[in-house]
């Protein structure tokens, strides 16, 4: 087996005095979809945010252990967090377009990377929007405000915005939780398409979704990684009782 894209070793996270993640170790393979499931408050979103160090923004967070991306510990003092986030993109639970035009939203990332050539930007914006399956819907109103898009469109535009920076890994924090079934289906289709080129980690509280889109599934409970393995196995013959209870809907 090839080198895993992300390796987590003994990761523990505290919010102040409270332990939110307890000694988590796992490996996330390249160009596959890994889903994190678990009841709310189990730490899965927090864990996702450790993978591109978004937790740095929250005061009183203390982290021990290692997260290796391409064998590089991203919690090393020598790591540049800003560039790390270009490599590890993120899509949030609530679609969060900037109050700018669609074009400006997608071009934001390339621009801060120093690309100001109009031609180049146009190509990047178009390609990104195409990859996110939204180009056809917005190509005639690129310069309208992104706030005018529907929820599902906004979310796909946010994915396009993340793709425009050309990341290798995309973290998705419940990307479809606020969307209707049709938009959700589109997002899932998109995820399926994206995994050809990107490593995707997705947090979801929707087990069907995890079963549909992911190759691997990790079940979290109370800040611990209970079980991790092939999605099919987790959903059919889990090793742990807790996992089975959750999957079958006995709690959570």
């Amino acid at each position: 087996m090839k080198q895993p894209k992300i390796q987590i070793r003994d990761l523990t996270l505290f919010y102040g005095e409270k332990m939110a993640l307890n000694s988590i170790s796992m490996e996330i393979p390249e160009k596959e979809v890994t889903a994190f499931i678990g009841p709310s408050g189990c730490g899965k979103s927090t864990f996702l945010r450790t993978l591109n160090r978004m937790n740095d923004l929250i005061p009183n967070v203390r982290i021990t252990g290692e997260v290796l991306v391409d064998s590089l510990n991203i919690y090393d003092k020598q790591i540049d967090v800003v560039n790390l986030r270009k490599k590890v993109g993120m899509v949030f639970q609530k679609s969060n377009p900037f109050t700018k035009s669609i074009y400006e939203n997608v071009a934001y990332g390339p621009k801060i990377n120093g690309i100001h050539d109009r031609k180049k930007l146009e190509v990047i914006v178009e390609t990104s929007l195409q990859k996110a399956f939204i180009w056809e819907e917005v190509k005639d109103r690129l310069h309208d405000s992104a706030m005018g898009l529907s929820g599902g469109q906004q979310q796909r535009m946010c994915i396009a915005r993340a793709l425009a920076v050309n990341p290798e890994i995309i973290l998705m924090d419940e990307p479809a939780s606020a969307l209707d079934p049709i938009s959700t289906a589109k997002i899932e289709e998109l995820i399926f398409e994206l995994k050809k080129n990107y490593t995707i980690v997705i947090v979801t509280h929707n087990m069907q979704q995890a079963a549909r889109v992911s190759d691997l599934t990790a079940f979290f409970y109370l800040g611990e990684l209970v079980e991790y393995g092939k999605t099919r196995k987790i959903f059919t013959t889990p090793d742990k009782k807790q996992t089975e209870d959750y999957i079958t809907g006995r709690f959570g």
Partner: peptide, 17 residues
């Protein structure tokens, strides 16, 4: 909104940007 700051930072923008 905090979400907009996060979106920007997640795209690799620095704090000042």
């Amino acid at each position: 909104p905090r979400e907009m700051r996060e979106a920007s930072l997640a795209l690799g923008a620095t704090k000042w940007e």
